[in-house]
Design a protein around this nucleic acid. Structure first.
Length: 139
DNA sequence: GCCAACGTTGGC
DNA sequence: GCCAACGTTGGC
């Protein structure tokens, strides 16, 4: 089981948009960064991820599940870019802010802290459980 | 809204 | 293959 973090600017694509897609989910398209793409290639159906709102909100707001492995990104003809499909699983009872994450020394190694610009990131199992606890939400 | 950091592009 | 220039991201 892998754990990940998906980051989006809520004005472009937010948690509410993801929830509206229901069980059918949606492509996590538009990624044009090799590191992020490589992580998506590693994802397997059933892997879980955090849904993070960047910019104004800067918080983890919910949990998503990978429902389709990496496949060509339908928003480009460029064969280099691939994406997975994800669906919303459940919202966080309590949003976990970037400030909270930075304040917790157990989370100091998170990619979110170290390389805030990477839009798709791996999360360790320990980090996963800590943040779920902070969010008062079942892993 | 600004700007630093980063990744990508393209000229040499 | 190097590196300067450029565009984009995202925290502040």
């Amino acid at each position: 089981m892998g754990y990940w973090l998906f980051k989006s600017e809520p004005n472009t694509w937010g948690w509410d948009d993801q929830v509206a897609k229901g069980a059918a989910g949606e492509e996590w398209d538009g990624v044009r960064n090799y590191q992020a793409r490589n992580f998506m290639r590693e994802m397997k159906v059933g892997d879980l991820g955090f849904f993070y709102h960047s910019m104004k909100e800067k918080s983890v707001v919910g949990i998503v599940e990978v429902i389709r492995q990496a496949h060509p990104d339908s928003t480009t003809d460029d064969a280099r870019w691939e994406c997975v499909d994800i669906k919303a699983v459940r919202p966080f009872e309590q949003k976990v802010s970037l400030d909270q994450i930075k304040a917790d020394e157990r989370l100091a190694d998170m990619v979110l802290v170290k390389n805030s610009r990477l839009s798709v990131q791996p999360v360790t199992e320990d980090q996963w459980h800590i943040i779920c606890t902070l969010g008062q939400t079942q892993p």
